[in-house]
Amino acid sequence: MSDKKPKNVFREGPISSDFIGNSIYKHQSKTSIGAHNIFLGQVRADDIDGKTVSAIEYTAYEDMANQKFHEIRESAFDKFDLTCMHIYHSLGSVKAGEICLFVFVSSPRRKVVFEALEYIVEAIKADVPVFGKEIFEDETHQWKVNS
C-alpha cells in the first residue's frame, strides 16, 4: 500500500494522544494485521549549563523533508513486509513532555515491525531536513543537533 506521491507529514504543534489513539482505532478494520509497533518522540526537558529546555520550535525545509519522508516510506515498504505505515512530525512549538514524532508500522507478523520501526526512525533522524530550536525557561535558546 505504498503511495506514489509525497504526503504532507507535518502537523502544526504537538501530536495529541487523541490523534494517536484514533490512529490505532482506525486499524481495527484491517484484520490481516497481527502486529503494530509505535515510536513516539517526546520533547525532553534537558538541563544544559544550569538551564532547562521548556520547548522545541521545529522548522523544516518542507518540500525536501516531505520528499525524504516519502523515500524512507518507499524504502521501508521495499525492505519489510509491512501492511501500512504512518509518519507524523510536528512543526512549530512543542513543549517538554509533548509528542513531536509519531511513527506507526503494521504487519501480519511481529518481528517485521520491530526491525522496520528502528530503520524508519533512524532514517528520519539522519536524512530529513528538520531543525529544532531548544527554548529555555529564561527565553534564551540553542539549536538542537541529532546525535
Binding site: G41, Y58, A60, Y61, M64, A65, H89, C100, L101, V121, I124, K125, A126, D127, V128, P129, V130, F131, G132, W143, K144, V145, N146
Partner: peptide, 10 residues
C-alpha cells in the same frame, strides 16, 4: 539552493 544546518528531527 538551500543552506541546511544539522538536522534535528524527531
Amino acid at each position: 539552493i538551500a543552506l541546511l544546518p544539522p538536522f534535528a528531527g524527531g
